[in-house]
Amino acid sequence: MSSNNPFARLPEAATFTVTSDTVTDGSAWSAEQLSAGLPGGKDVSPQLSWHDAPAGTKSYAVTVYDPDAPTGSGFWHWAVADIPATVTELPEGAGDATGSGLPAGAFQLPNDTRDARFIGAAPPAGHGPHRYFVVVHALDVESIGVPAEATPAVLGFTMAGHILGRAVLTATAETAA
């Protein structure tokens, strides 16, 4: 597993807590969170709950990122922007193609397959274990101001100066050779 830290070059931010009924921090995704292209995979976004965000939080964004993907730039699996500050949970499956499980005002950006939904883990066979950083970003603005067709990288760049805190849960996945 790579030691690549996706937060190493980002501004420091306070920490708060994210938990999941779907996955335990440091553990493997269940089959539901694997890509539908793998046996048993279903592309179902994880349930997430968070608390103790920093004072002044006006919205949240959620991202799922694999820094270990053999691309030179990692792989974005999911990005949700403009989650209202009053929301502290997303149900399992909220990241489907309709986004019907998302709160009013929130929207999904296209992932690295250019689909505005959650796409499950699918590390290349024999590539070893991959880490999936599930991050809830507490922001100091009600709307981050990126268009719905923006990439998760543009979301990250735009958020950089607005992040009050980060809650991080790391899942793993590996595909046997």
Rank of each mutant, 00 (worst) to 15 (best):
N4E: 14
N5G: 06
F7C: 02
R9M: 10
R9S: 13
R9E: 14
A13N: 04
A13T: 02
T15S: 13
F16A: 03
T17L: 07
S20K: 11
S20W: 11
D21W: 00
D21E: 14
D25Y: 09
G26W: 09
S30H: 11
A31I: 11
E32V: 08
G37D: 14
G37R: 13
L38G: 03
L38E: 13
P39D: 08
D43T: 01
S45W: 10
L48D: 04
D52E: 14
A53T: 03
P54L: 05
A55I: 06
K58F: 04
Y60S: 06
Y60C: 05
V62H: 11
V62G: 08
T63H: 00
V64I: 15
Y65D: 00
D66S: 13
D68L: 12
G72A: 04
G72D: 05
W76D: 04
W76E: 03
A79E: 03
I83E: 06
A85Y: 01
T86N: 07
V87F: 00
T88M: 00
T88K: 09
L90V: 10
P91I: 07
G95K: 10
G95C: 10
D96E: 13
G99S: 10
S100N: 14
S100L: 07
S100M: 05
L102M: 07
A104E: 15
A104V: 07
A104R: 08
A104S: 14
A104C: 00
F107W: 07
F107S: 12
Q108H: 06
L109Y: 09
L109V: 04
P110M: 06
P110T: 03
N111R: 07
T113D: 12
R114V: 13
D115R: 14
D115V: 10
A116L: 02
R117L: 03
I119N: 14
I119A: 08
A122S: 13
A122V: 01
A122T: 07
P124N: 04
G126R: 02
P129T: 15
P129H: 01
P129E: 15
Y132S: 05
V134F: 09
V134E: 12
V135K: 03
V135D: 07
V136P: 02
A138K: 03
L139W: 05
E142V: 08
S143H: 13
I144E: 04
V146Q: 02
V146N: 02
P147Q: 12
P147S: 12
A148Y: 07
T151M: 01
A153H: 04
G156C: 00
G161L: 09
L164Q: 02
G165A: 11
R166F: 02
A167S: 10
A167G: 15
V168G: 00
L169R: 12
T170Q: 10
A171V: 06
A171H: 06
T172H: 10
A173Y: 11
A176D: 13
A176I: 00
A177G: 12
A177C: 02
